[in-house]
Amino acid sequence: MRLIPLGDSAVTVELGEAIDPDVNALVVAYANRIIEQGWNGIVDVVPTYRSITVHYDPIQWDLTALTDRLLALPCPYPHEAGSQGALHDIPVLYGGDHGPDLEGVASFAGLEPSEVITLHASVCYRVYMLGFTPGFPYLGLLPEKLAMPRLPTPRPSVPPGSVGLANRQTGIYPIATPGGWRLIGRTPISLYRRTGLDPFLLKPGDQVRFRSIDETEFERLSCEMAHEHDRPQQRPR
């Protein structure tokens, strides 16, 4: 374990050296343990691939007091670290306008586009972390064969729901943003529901499986999602 202060209001606790499911399971369990303490003045706890960033109010805490408390926390038990998050089935319309890079990825990998789809959908991915935009999951590990670097120039706008890949990761863009990942398809499922009480579909440590769908199914699910959006979910004030 290595403690890395980030300025005067955060500290990163590093639990491993590499992107590894066991290290990440420990990260998620340890982050949950810190959150459970409910310490006043701890404003955010952010688990990432192999470390946790703890944001604190520097008026209430000094670094030594915080690191003493963090180091005194018992390590999560192996069974906690090993617990699986929720399993999500994410339907994807691969290729065409929704996946403009599918052909490119296929020729890079020396495969047919249909083989890329089968391979991408064959793996149960772990949500290693969320970042970049609200609800954006970093999923891994992508089969080695599909590991292609990012686009040399990011697209100025990627439509929400786009499924992309970059190196050994795959991810889903929850909102329209610029993006440099190679886009192979699109899901009608909303990953960030801005009016919802719990707007984030995926949580760190969850599992994701992709399923190939056709245009009709995509349209049907898109309509369903739109209806769900119309329903007021925000608690009246």
Partner: peptide, 11 residues
């Protein structure tokens, strides 16, 4: 907006 950075939500 604190408490949601772990879901990728900027502050």
């Amino acid at each position: 907006r604190h408490g949601y950075q772990r879901y990728g939500m900027p502050v």
